[in-house]
Design a protein around this nucleic acid. Structure first.
Lengths: 204, 204
DNA sequence: GCAAGTTTACATTCATGTATGTATGCCTGT
DNA sequence: ACAGGCATACATACATGAATGTAAACTTGC
């Protein structure tokens, strides 16, 4: 029963993306065929090729449904509504990233990004991530420098190093937890890590 | 010119593994064919199938030529020759991991592991890593607890959280740097991060 | 001469992309 | 308001290419 209404077409598009998430997660991106994705969505490959150019296009469309952690952290940190104290602003933004990572879709997609795909095959994703990382790094260093000027950051801690530590901690936490979410409760461990980190950096 | 002496056969085996490192790094594991690896080594696919069962077998043989970071950290930490002070022992072991990661072979293989392969396809590697991570976690928590008893670890820092922080930092650092080693000098940033971490955790 | 080591040839599988078919929704003129 | 026409939203069929694994041939050390 071909040709659906416009709304139904949009629904199958979403269904295909949902299916892609599931199968990519199960089998890894390279080992899944478009046939498998289509069948999971109750469609055929024809539907896939209608909505997407190819597997890579589908993959990118899937990514666009979630917000990248670094992008989100940037937005949070630069939100003018946030508290004026830079360290506190950073702390909250970091906590927020961990929170959002636990949402099912975000979790699935980022598991795929970290553990189920080969970055080499999608060079532009790599570049995108690169730009984001640099931008994020710069913003965070700025905040730590502001904190140092206010005297809220311990003098012995250099802003560049604090930034690398925080970013590494975040990335490492995501990488580890997404590899095996059963191993611990990130909703508990994450905040405790982050709070300990900031607690040890402020001038006491 | 087929059949060489025994030593030459071993040499082609190594050449095949070297070739695999190079091509896997360039193109990602799933996108490289055994043909490409063979040609890079100046052989044909027949040689590959003589020395290895299939691509997965070759991949694992490649992994066995390097020491996994967690395995190495464990060995270092448990080395009875190491200083008696647990925090100092941990600090040195962590520095050592960063040092060794920079060695060309280690760097290539771990870039492949982090960024050029889909873990889903090699389940046993996942399990191996899982066991190592747990073992490593336990040992590190033990050290932090010893430090706490000696009063060298700040009371407000819980051993479990300190362990997660350190492991996340290490994993995140490796992940980030291997993604783009040009972006910063890990030989400088790594030690400064680690020293700052331990410097802020000890009782001051 | 036998077996280790390597090549070549071959059969098979499988995913991809494209081309074609087709039924339906939607729009437009009257 | 409805009939015709066209674009949409898929399904199906097919052609192609690439990678895999295996078997057979070959070549040389021991």
């Amino acid at each position: 029963m071909p040709k659906r209404t416009k709304a139904e077409a949009e629904a199958t598009r979403e269904a295909l993306l949902d299916a892609a998430e599931v199968i990519f997660l199960e089998r890894g991106v390279s080992r899944t065929s478009l046939e498998q994705i289509a069948r999971q969505a109750g469609m055929t490959r024809g539907a896939v090729y209608w909505h997407f150019k190819n597997k890579s296009d589908l993959f990118h469309a899937m990514l666009e449904r979630v917000k990248m952690p670094l992008r989100q952290l940037l937005d949070d940190v630069e939100d003018p509504e946030r508290p004026n104290e830079p360290l506190e602003s950073l702390r909250r933004a970091t906590l927020h990233v961990v929170e959002r990572l636990q949402r099912p879709r975000s979790r699935r997609v980022h598991t795929i990004l970290f553990h189920r795909c080969e970055v080499a095959s999608d060079v532009d994703v790599l570049n995108l991530h690169e730009k984001l990382a640099n931008e994020c790094y710069d913003t965070m260093v700025e905040r730590f420098e502001q904190a140092r000027e206010r005297g809220t950051l311990t003098e012995s801690v250099e802003p560049e190093i604090a930034t690398r530590m925080l970013m590494s901690m975040l990335v490492g936490l995501m990488y580890d937890w997404l590899r095996n979410p059963e191993s611990y409760d990130i909703g508990d461990v994450g905040p405790r890590m982050i709070n300990t980190f900031f607690g040890r950096l402020v001038h006491v």
